[in-house]
Protein backbone atom coordinates (compact mmCIF):
# COMPACT_ATOMS: atom_id res chain seq x y z
CA UNK A 1 0.00 0.00 0.00
CA UNK A 2 1.13 3.53 -0.73
CA UNK A 3 0.18 6.17 1.81
CA UNK A 4 0.80 9.86 1.31
CA UNK A 5 0.12 12.40 4.05
CA UNK A 6 0.37 16.21 3.87
CA UNK A 7 2.73 16.07 0.90
CA UNK A 8 4.01 19.41 -0.35
CA UNK A 9 6.54 20.42 -2.94
CA UNK A 10 7.44 24.06 -3.36
CA UNK A 11 9.88 25.77 -5.67
CA UNK A 12 10.83 29.04 -4.04
CA UNK A 13 7.41 30.54 -3.24
CA UNK A 14 5.40 28.43 -5.69
CA UNK A 15 3.61 25.31 -4.43
CA UNK A 16 3.47 22.75 -7.23
CA UNK A 17 2.13 19.83 -5.21
CA UNK A 18 -0.16 19.88 -2.18
CA UNK A 19 -1.76 16.53 -1.38
CA UNK A 20 -3.51 16.20 1.95
CA UNK A 21 -4.02 12.44 1.84
CA UNK A 22 -3.75 9.74 -0.80
CA UNK A 23 -3.90 5.98 -0.21
CA UNK A 24 -3.31 3.56 -3.07
CA UNK A 25 -4.15 -0.09 -2.49
CA UNK A 26 -1.79 -2.85 -3.59
CA UNK A 27 -2.28 -4.01 -7.15
CA UNK A 28 -4.12 -0.86 -8.25
CA UNK A 29 -3.44 0.84 -11.55
CA UNK A 30 -3.81 4.52 -10.76
CA UNK A 31 -3.94 7.11 -13.53
CA UNK A 32 -2.87 10.62 -12.56
CA UNK A 33 -4.33 13.21 -14.91
CA UNK A 34 -4.23 16.97 -14.97
CA UNK A 35 -3.24 19.95 -17.06
CA UNK A 36 0.39 20.84 -17.78
CA UNK A 37 2.13 21.96 -14.61
CA UNK A 38 -0.52 20.44 -12.35
CA UNK A 39 2.06 18.35 -10.46
CA UNK A 40 1.70 14.93 -12.12
CA UNK A 41 5.37 14.42 -12.91
CA UNK A 42 6.38 15.95 -9.58
CA UNK A 43 4.25 13.38 -7.73
CA UNK A 44 5.76 10.51 -9.72
CA UNK A 45 9.30 11.79 -9.29
CA UNK A 46 8.82 12.11 -5.54
CA UNK A 47 7.45 8.56 -5.35
CA UNK A 48 10.44 7.40 -7.40
CA UNK A 49 12.85 9.16 -4.99
CA UNK A 50 14.14 11.26 -7.88
CA UNK A 51 12.94 14.40 -6.13
CA UNK A 52 12.68 15.35 -2.46
CA UNK A 53 9.37 16.56 -1.08
CA UNK A 54 9.42 19.84 0.79
CA UNK A 55 7.29 18.33 3.53
CA UNK A 56 5.01 15.38 4.22
CA UNK A 57 5.13 11.64 4.77
CA UNK A 58 5.24 8.87 2.19
CA UNK A 59 5.04 5.16 2.86
CA UNK A 60 5.69 3.25 -0.35
CA UNK A 61 7.46 0.05 -1.44
CA UNK A 62 11.23 0.44 -1.75
CA UNK A 63 11.37 -1.83 -4.77
CA UNK A 64 10.05 0.53 -7.43
CA UNK A 65 10.78 1.22 -11.08
CA UNK A 66 10.35 4.56 -12.79
CA UNK A 67 10.03 5.43 -16.45
CA UNK A 68 10.69 9.14 -17.09
CA UNK A 69 8.68 11.23 -19.53
CA UNK A 70 11.67 11.74 -21.83
CA UNK A 71 12.72 8.30 -23.03
CA UNK A 72 16.48 7.97 -23.41
CA UNK A 73 18.21 5.82 -26.03
CA UNK A 74 21.48 4.36 -24.77
CA UNK A 75 24.17 3.37 -27.26
CA UNK A 76 23.89 -0.07 -28.78
CA UNK A 77 20.92 -1.92 -30.24
CA UNK A 78 17.50 -2.45 -28.69
CA UNK A 79 18.52 -5.66 -26.93
CA UNK A 80 21.58 -3.92 -25.41
CA UNK A 81 19.26 -1.19 -24.17
CA UNK A 82 17.15 -3.72 -22.29
CA UNK A 83 19.91 -5.99 -20.99
CA UNK A 84 21.78 -3.06 -19.45
CA UNK A 85 19.26 -3.19 -16.62
CA UNK A 86 20.34 -6.76 -15.86
CA UNK A 87 17.75 -8.69 -17.91
CA UNK A 88 18.81 -11.65 -20.04
CA UNK A 89 18.61 -11.60 -23.85
CA UNK A 90 15.66 -14.01 -23.94
CA UNK A 91 13.54 -11.73 -21.72
CA UNK A 92 14.58 -8.78 -23.86
CA UNK A 93 13.49 -10.56 -27.04
CA UNK A 94 10.13 -11.54 -25.53
CA UNK A 95 9.44 -7.97 -24.44
CA UNK A 96 10.40 -6.58 -27.83
CA UNK A 97 8.01 -9.02 -29.45
CA UNK A 98 5.24 -8.05 -27.05
CA UNK A 99 5.71 -4.37 -27.87
CA UNK A 100 6.07 -5.15 -31.61
CA UNK A 101 9.66 -4.00 -31.82
CA UNK A 102 11.37 -7.34 -32.52
CA UNK A 103 11.94 -6.48 -36.19
CA UNK A 104 14.12 -3.58 -34.97
CA UNK A 105 15.98 -5.52 -32.27
CA UNK A 106 19.39 -5.26 -33.97
CA UNK A 107 18.98 -1.58 -34.91
CA UNK A 108 20.64 1.21 -32.99
CA UNK A 109 18.29 2.58 -30.33
CA UNK A 110 19.19 6.14 -31.35
CA UNK A 111 17.59 5.53 -34.75
CA UNK A 112 14.11 4.88 -33.29
CA UNK A 113 11.14 7.22 -33.64
CA UNK A 114 9.65 8.85 -30.53
CA UNK A 115 6.87 6.29 -30.18
CA UNK A 116 9.22 3.34 -30.72
CA UNK A 117 11.66 4.75 -28.20
CA UNK A 118 8.89 5.12 -25.66
CA UNK A 119 7.92 1.46 -26.14
CA UNK A 120 11.59 0.47 -25.79
CA UNK A 121 11.76 2.50 -22.58
CA UNK A 122 8.76 0.53 -21.29
CA UNK A 123 10.47 -2.77 -22.27
CA UNK A 124 13.49 -1.72 -20.20
CA UNK A 125 11.32 -1.09 -17.14
CA UNK A 126 9.21 -4.22 -17.59
CA UNK A 127 12.33 -6.38 -17.81
CA UNK A 128 12.73 -6.02 -14.04
CA UNK A 129 10.48 -7.06 -11.19
CA UNK A 130 9.07 -4.43 -8.84
CA UNK A 131 6.30 -3.84 -6.33
CA UNK A 132 5.62 -0.37 -7.68
CA UNK A 133 5.73 0.78 -11.28
CA UNK A 134 5.84 4.54 -11.89
CA UNK A 135 5.25 5.59 -15.49
CA UNK A 136 5.38 9.22 -16.54
CA UNK A 137 3.13 9.65 -19.58
CA UNK A 138 3.97 6.24 -21.08
CA UNK A 139 1.95 6.79 -24.28
CA UNK A 140 2.57 10.48 -24.96
CA UNK A 141 4.55 9.79 -28.17
CA UNK A 142 2.66 6.64 -29.27
CA UNK A 143 0.16 6.24 -32.07
CA UNK A 144 -3.13 4.37 -31.47
CA UNK A 145 -1.59 0.92 -32.01
CA UNK A 146 1.45 1.79 -29.91
CA UNK A 147 -0.74 3.04 -27.05
CA UNK A 148 -2.80 -0.16 -27.19
CA UNK A 149 0.37 -2.28 -26.93
CA UNK A 150 1.58 -0.21 -23.98
CA UNK A 151 -1.76 -0.59 -22.17
CA UNK A 152 -1.79 -4.37 -22.71
CA UNK A 153 1.83 -4.72 -21.56
CA UNK A 154 1.18 -2.72 -18.37
CA UNK A 155 -1.93 -4.72 -17.52
CA UNK A 156 -0.16 -8.00 -18.22
CA UNK A 157 2.79 -6.99 -16.02
CA UNK A 158 0.40 -6.12 -13.20
CA UNK A 159 -1.36 -9.48 -13.56
CA UNK A 160 1.93 -11.39 -13.48
CA UNK A 161 3.59 -9.48 -10.65
CA UNK A 162 0.66 -8.16 -8.66
CA UNK A 163 2.37 -4.79 -8.45
CA UNK A 164 0.89 -1.33 -8.05
CA UNK A 165 1.09 0.99 -11.05
CA UNK A 166 0.96 4.78 -10.92
CA UNK A 167 1.01 6.50 -14.29
CA UNK A 168 0.53 10.07 -15.32
CA UNK A 169 -1.38 10.70 -18.52
CA UNK A 170 -3.04 13.19 -20.79
CA UNK A 171 -4.72 10.41 -22.75
CA UNK A 172 -8.29 9.62 -21.70
CA UNK A 173 -8.16 6.33 -23.61
CA UNK A 174 -5.21 5.12 -21.56
CA UNK A 175 -6.95 5.96 -18.28
CA UNK A 176 -10.21 4.34 -19.36
CA UNK A 177 -8.64 1.17 -20.70
CA UNK A 178 -5.88 0.55 -18.17
CA UNK A 179 -6.65 2.24 -14.87
CA UNK A 180 -8.75 1.02 -11.94
CA UNK A 181 -8.72 4.43 -10.38
CA UNK A 182 -7.96 7.96 -11.49
CA UNK A 183 -7.14 11.20 -9.75
CA UNK A 184 -7.14 14.58 -11.43
CA UNK A 185 -4.65 17.14 -10.19
CA UNK A 186 -5.28 20.86 -10.47
CA UNK A 187 -2.62 23.28 -9.25
CA UNK A 188 -1.04 20.46 -7.25
CA UNK A 189 -4.24 19.47 -5.40
CA UNK A 190 -6.47 16.44 -5.97
CA UNK A 191 -9.59 17.81 -7.65
CA UNK A 192 -11.25 14.49 -8.52
CA UNK A 193 -10.83 10.90 -7.37
CA UNK A 194 -12.71 7.82 -8.58
CA UNK A 195 -12.89 5.26 -11.33
CA UNK A 196 -11.97 6.67 -14.75
CA UNK A 197 -15.45 5.85 -16.08
CA UNK A 198 -17.19 7.70 -13.24
CA UNK A 199 -14.99 10.78 -13.55
CA UNK A 200 -15.39 10.71 -17.31
CA UNK A 201 -19.16 10.16 -17.40
CA UNK A 202 -20.34 11.76 -14.16
CA UNK A 203 -17.87 14.42 -13.10
CA UNK A 204 -18.92 15.65 -9.65
CA UNK A 205 -17.34 19.07 -9.43
CA UNK A 206 -17.35 21.99 -11.86
CA UNK A 207 -13.59 21.69 -12.05
CA UNK A 208 -13.78 18.00 -13.07
CA UNK A 209 -16.56 18.80 -15.55
CA UNK A 210 -14.54 21.48 -17.31
CA UNK A 211 -11.42 19.28 -17.37
CA UNK A 212 -13.13 16.17 -18.73
CA UNK A 213 -15.11 18.18 -21.29
CA UNK A 214 -11.95 18.43 -23.37
CA UNK A 215 -11.43 14.68 -23.02
CA UNK A 216 -14.83 13.77 -24.38
CA UNK A 217 -13.92 15.15 -27.76
CA UNK A 218 -10.56 13.28 -27.66
CA UNK A 219 -11.78 9.88 -26.46
Amino acid sequence: MIEIKSLKKTYRERTVLDIDKLVIDDGTILAVAGANGSGKSTLLRILACQLKATEGEIASPENSLYMPQQAYAFRGNLIDNITLSGADRETAKQLLEKLELSHLSEKKATSLSGGELQRLSLCRVLSRKAELLLLDEPTSACDVRGAELVVNAIKEYREENGCTVVMSTHAPALALKAADRMIILGNGKIEADGTPADIFNKPETDWAKSFTAGWKTDA
Binding site: A48, G86, R128
Partner: peptide, 11 residues
Protein backbone atom coordinates in the same frame (compact mmCIF):
# COMPACT_ATOMS: atom_id res chain seq x y z
CA UNK B 1 18.31 12.01 -18.66
CA UNK B 2 20.88 9.21 -18.37
CA UNK B 3 20.95 9.45 -14.57
CA UNK B 4 17.15 9.78 -14.37
CA UNK B 5 16.60 6.70 -16.57
CA UNK B 6 19.27 4.61 -14.86
CA UNK B 7 18.08 5.52 -11.35
CA UNK B 8 14.54 4.72 -12.44
CA UNK B 9 15.74 1.22 -13.33
CA UNK B 10 17.24 0.84 -9.88
CA UNK B 11 20.84 0.63 -11.13
Amino acid sequence: PIIETARGLGL
